[in-house]
C-alpha cells in the first residue's frame, strides 16, 4: 500500500489483525449486500468469541450463518434473526447472546459511532423491553430513551465499485447498512465487484468517501437470493 491506495491482494491480508473477542460491524440486509468473502475469511481464520453487529445473522450455511457453525460468535446485535435455525438453537441453550435492537436504532448506532456521537435520544423502544434500564428524557412532552452508539474493531462492508482510494458506490438496495458500517470500524475492510482507477468515478456520485476505508479488495460474489419472487410477463 502507498499513499491513498487501499487495495490489498489477499483476503488473509484484508482481515489481518482480527483477534479473538473483537467486535465486528457488518453491512448487509438479509443476504443482500453482505461481505460474503470477508465472512468466509473469518470462518477460515477461526477467530472466536466475536461480537457481531449486523441487522441479520445470515441463514444456515451462508453469510454470517457460517460463523455460527464453529461457534465463533459470542454475541449478535441484530434487529431480526428469524431465518437461522442454528442461531435459534445456540440462543435457546445459552451458547449465544442476542441483543435485539430496533432496526432504525441499529442504523443510527452505527452512524453515530462513526460520526463521533457517543449516544442519542430516540422515541423508538420507549415503554418496551428495549427501553428497560435506559435513561429517559422528555422533549416537548414526549419521552425518549438514551441509546449508545457502536464502534467496531473491524467493519466489513460490501460495495459495488470503488476506486483504489476506497471511494465507493453501492448498487440498488445492496447499499442498506453498508455506508454506516463503513464509518464505524477502527479498521474498515471493503470488498467490491470492481476496482477502478482514481478519477474514473464521478466524485458527486460517491456514497462512501475513501477516508472511511482502510483496506479494499476485489471479490467474486455468489449473491444468494433469500426470497425469489417473480411475476409472469404482463402481470402487474
Amino acid at each position: 500500500m502507498s499513499g491513498f491506495d487501499k487495495v490489498v491482494n489477499s483476503y488473509e491480508e484484508a482481515m489481518a489483525g482480527l483477534e479473538d473477542g473483537m467486535t465486528i460491524i457488518a453491512g448487509g440486509f438479509g443476504l443482500c449486500g453482505i461481505p460474503e468473502n470477508l465472512i468466509n475469511e473469518i470462518k477460515r481464520k477461526g477467530t472466536k468469541n466475536l461480537t457481531v453487529v449486523s441487522n441479520n445473522a445470515g441463514v444456515d450455511g451462508f453469510g454470517l450463518g457460517v460463523l455460527l457453525e464453529d461457534q465463533q460468535i459470542k454475541k449478535m446485535v441484530s434487529s431480526y434473526v428469524g431465518e437461522n435455525k442454528l442461531l435459534m438453537e445456540q440462543l435457546l441453550d445459552g451458547r449465544l447472546e442476542v441483543e435485539l435492537t430496533p432496526q432504525g436504532t441499529l442504523a443510527e448506532k452505527m452512524r453515530a459511532g462513526g460520526a463521533g456521537i457517543p449516544a442519542f435520544f430516540t422515541a423508538t423502544g420507549y415503554g418496551t423491553e428495549v427501553g428497560k434500564g435506559k435513561e429517559v428524557r422528555e422533549y416537548d412532552g414526549r419521552p425518549y430513551i438514551l441509546e449508545e452508539s457502536i464502534k467496531g474493531d473491524f467493519a466489513i462492508v460490501k460495495a459495488w465499485k470503488a476506486d483504489r482510494y476506497g471511494n465507493a458506490i453501492y448498487r440498488h438496495t445492496a447499499m442498506n447498512f453498508n455506508p454506516m458500517a463503513a464509518t464505524a470500524g477502527k479498521i474498515t475492510v471493503m470488498e467490491v465487484e470492481e476496482i477502478v482507477e482514481p478519477g474514473e468515478l464521478d466524485p458527486s456520485q460517491i456514497h462512501t468517501p475513501g477516508i472511511y476505508v482502510h483496506r479494499l479488495i476485489k471479490g467474486t460474489f455468489e449473491k444468494r437470493i433469500e426470497q425469489r419472487t417473480v411475476r409472469t410477463e404482463g402481470e402487474a
Partner: peptide, 8 residues
Amino acid sequence: IKGMGGAM
C-alpha cells in the same frame, strides 16, 4: 424469537 426488525 425473531426480532422486531423495523417495527418499533
